[in-house]
Design a protein around this nucleic acid. Structure first.
Lengths: 259, 259
DNA sequence: GATAACTATTTACAGTGTACGGGGTTGTTG
DNA sequence: CAACAACCCCGTACACTGTAAATAGTTATC
């Protein structure tokens, strides 16, 4: 099963597990493992070895039950992935910062960097997220806090939605590369430097005249900060995004028309 | 093998295949299948049924060779994925538009929408791309054209690199959801409407008082354009990104200082 | 004709998710 | 008390995956 994206499982079953709405069993033997335990070790495996190391067998074994006992607790792997995503989402904006409307730019920067740190800490969530958000308590909590970063600016609810979507879409796009860096290194056993070292001799035999602009710009970028500079690129992009939002927000703000 | 990301294969072998640098064999029987053929059917399978339907066995069978004969042409699945990515990259900015510096905003809009269309046409590339770009001719070609959209604006080569990175990161982040929509529908057999229909009753039993902002904004967004509106969100975000870049570019442009 | 270079194929192994059916444990009910 | 229902656990099995290893067949060169 390589199509590992969230939102695949039975939505109702997932929801019940996410919100702890499974009523306690009246009879039967006591369970050797709990859902929380299974999710926790699955997250630990994903953090340490990547998503592909998470298998139902492996998770079951890690909590001390047999492979098939996994399915007594969680209907299938799809539901496990949903639970994993919501579980780690609890780390986003964990201290619930108090935002002041006047500092919206600082607020959004905080939100963006917090989400970025989150993705970097759990790179496996990046290919997992789909448009059908996991409707769990932690996901709701982080979204609520993030939205509160732009409360009181005179934006409509719709504008708030789109504004946060823009920032988080950008963060997601910008972070996806940095997040994979370690992963690719582990898989290939090569650092980026080693990789370039192996690749460079071949590239010198390539005729770059069909790509004049790329050739010039790529050379300049490479000489300045090596193969790539995700942190600098993120900061640059975020500033531009916030500049764009500034024009939008200042134009909407009722009290302070800009010109 | 669930860790399907690019940049995993032997880099040199991949490069040789990408640039057609495998010297023609002098002896031996004629091959029943070519690399181009294998890549082509692999792309067709991925387009039609998603990345997880692409297996070496399936691809081999589709071109009429036995499962293991695949490996006489391509060293492994990692290299196949690299080749697939570069192959489809040929569709981006295919007609090589002529960009005029004065119209940089229109140029970048064209670049952004072209990349968006590309991702929507081949959603499987989204989880595949890593920071180790596939160094193939088509990838180079599209990057060169995209960069030429912001030539002649007085930007340094580094600024051009970061500017394009910003735009493409945003496009990637914004498109990831829309691209999965069809995919999730196929996997779950549910449209988004059916999904919401199943989920809504449960959500009404959830206490939303801990998420006041989310509850209000989510309700407003849902009532206005249903579950989500990726096209509108994309347009909104792109305008803001371009506004932010406008401030940056106008500030740098030598001839026209803004204030 | 021998040999080297090349393609194609068969078999096999260690994984994966999970359907199915049976066995053991617990609390409730007659 | 015995019977039963509810529940947890587990062994077996199936159809997949990528690919290592060994073998057989085909072609051009010496």
């Amino acid at each position: 099963m390589s199509d590992e994206i969230s939102g695949r499982g039975d939505p109702l079953k997932s929801l019940q597990l996410l919100w702890g709405r499974t009523e306690a069993p009246k009879r039967g033997p006591k369970a050797k493992a709990s859902v929380a335990e299974l999710v926790s070790v699955a997250v630990a495996i994903a953090d340490a070895e990547g998503l592909e190391a998470v298998s139902t067998r492996r998770v079951a074994e890690a909590v001390g039950i047999s492979p098939m006992s996994f399915y007594t607790h969680i209907p299938g792997k799809a539901e496990l992935l949903d639970l994993m995503m919501d579980a780690v989402s609890g780390e986003i904006l964990k201290d619930r910062p108090v935002f002041k409307p006047a500092d919206w730019r600082a607020n959004l920067t905080r939100v963006a960097t917090d989400y970025r740190d989150f993705y970097l800490a759990h790179p496996w969530v990046i290919p997992l997220a789909t448009h059908r958000t996991v409707l769990g308590p932690n996901t709701f909590r982080s979204a609520d806090i993030a939205l509160s970063a732009i409360e009181g600016l005179g934006l409509t609810d719709l504008d708030m939605d789109r504004t946060l979507t823009l920032v988080l879409d950008y963060v997601h796009g910008a972070v996806r590369n940095a997040a994979r860096e370690k992963r690719v290194k582990d898989l290939t056993g090569m650092t980026d430097e080693e990789w370039w070292y192996r690749v460079a001799p071949f590239l010198e035999t390539v005729d770059f005249t069909p790509y004049p602009v790329l050739s010039r710009v790529g050379k300049a970028a490479g000489e300045t900060y090596g193969a790539h500079d995700p942190k600098g690129a993120f900061a640059f992009g975020l500033e531009r995004v916030l500049d764009g939002l500034a024009a939008f927000i200042d134009g909407k703000a009722p009290g302070k028309p800009r010109r």
